[in-house]
Design a protein around this nucleic acid. Structure first.
Lengths: 180, 180
DNA sequence: TCCTCCATGTAATCGGTTACATGATTCG
DNA sequence: CGAATCATGTAACCGATTACATGGAGGA
């Protein structure tokens, strides 16, 4: 079930990266989909190297600072990733604390609850804007250099994000209008 | 962050329940939203009883078998739950392994990938049907006994589920038509 | 006969989060 | 002058999942 391993491999399948790069890409780029701390990234990469799924491509030494170790995926790593990608898996549960709060909305003051819903809605609107910008950026990159591009897969995922945020915002609106 | 506590309290705020009842309601009724194993439920309920958030309402002894201990929420428990319900919280991340698999779809055989998407779609269609049935059932119950009903809150949550599943199914269709 | 249901609970393990540690550089 | 950035890593903790344990009733 250790899905963090596959997240790391998914990024490395596109370009060689250091552990630090991966952490950044997860926490900014692939933002609200996955996150990983250094504690997970570095030990997992060490394990994967030992198993031959990735290998050191270059070491950039900058006098002071710890050496920047750039890894690339091996053919064995690609095989493992491809196999996992096509594997069947259990459906995920939704698990959003705010849903549980709405489940309890019958027992709290409706006016205060409405304000909370408005706040949540605003946060999702921000995330929606970020996703839409991301898609525009990806589309620009795809146009100039086409082919069987990994970027098309990225767009599909971010598009899910866009649709999810739109749904969430609509649902918030429904909740607010119900409480009036 | 211990959200399991609030999940248990949310159920107990509606009716007195035993640990076993809660486990069942989580894994069937509140199905794909939250899950909990006995290891979490029983120790957490012991803690909450010690803190005065819930208290023993009845003990049903059935000669053999461990005694069925039914708990009810206290006024202190309701306060804690109301406070949490109106608290601000961080936005949840989405985290669905299948999204990561789609992110990798550029590197696998498109025909096989399409088959996998169809399978996932089917699973979401099943979940959608279950949600719709659940809503119909809840609506029947609401009609006969109205008021400021907790059931209305339940409906809102399940409605989120319905809309989420519809979105997922649509997105799968888009993926399939893109790969053609 | 064997499996599932009821009903409580414990133990081992695993994955993730937060915080800590180092240390020079660059930006406000 | 203090904060953030780069870049590696470790340690402590917490929540969740899986499996184990008991044991009789009732159905396939």
């Amino acid at each position: 079930m250790s899905s963090i391993r596959y997240a790391l491999l998914s990024l490395l399948a596109r370009e060689p990266l250091s552990g630090y790069d991966i952490k950044l890409q997860m926490n900014n780029r692939l933002g609200p989909f996955w996150k990983a701390g250094s504690n997970q990234v570095y030990p997992e990469m060490a394990k994967m190297e030992a198993e031959g799924l990735i290998e050191l491509q270059a070491v950039e030494q900058n006098t002071y600072r710890p050496a920047r170790k750039v890894y690339e995926i091996t053919e064995a790593g690609r095989d493992v990733l491809r196999k996992w990608t096509l594997e069947a898996g259990e459906l995920e549960k939704v698990r959003d604390d705010f849903l549980l709060k709405v489940y309890n909305s019958w027992m709290v003051d409706p006016v205060t609850m409405s304000k909370r819903i408005e706040e949540i809605k605003k946060q999702h609107e921000e995330r929606l804007a970020a996703y839409e910008e991301k898609i525009a950026e990806l589309n620009r990159l795809v146009d100039q250099a086409n082919g069987n591009n990994p970027l098309l897969s990225s767009i599909s995922v971010v598009e899910f994000g866009v649709q999810y945020e739109r749904l969430y915002i609509e649902w918030c609106d429904q909740l607010i209008s119900k409480s009036k």
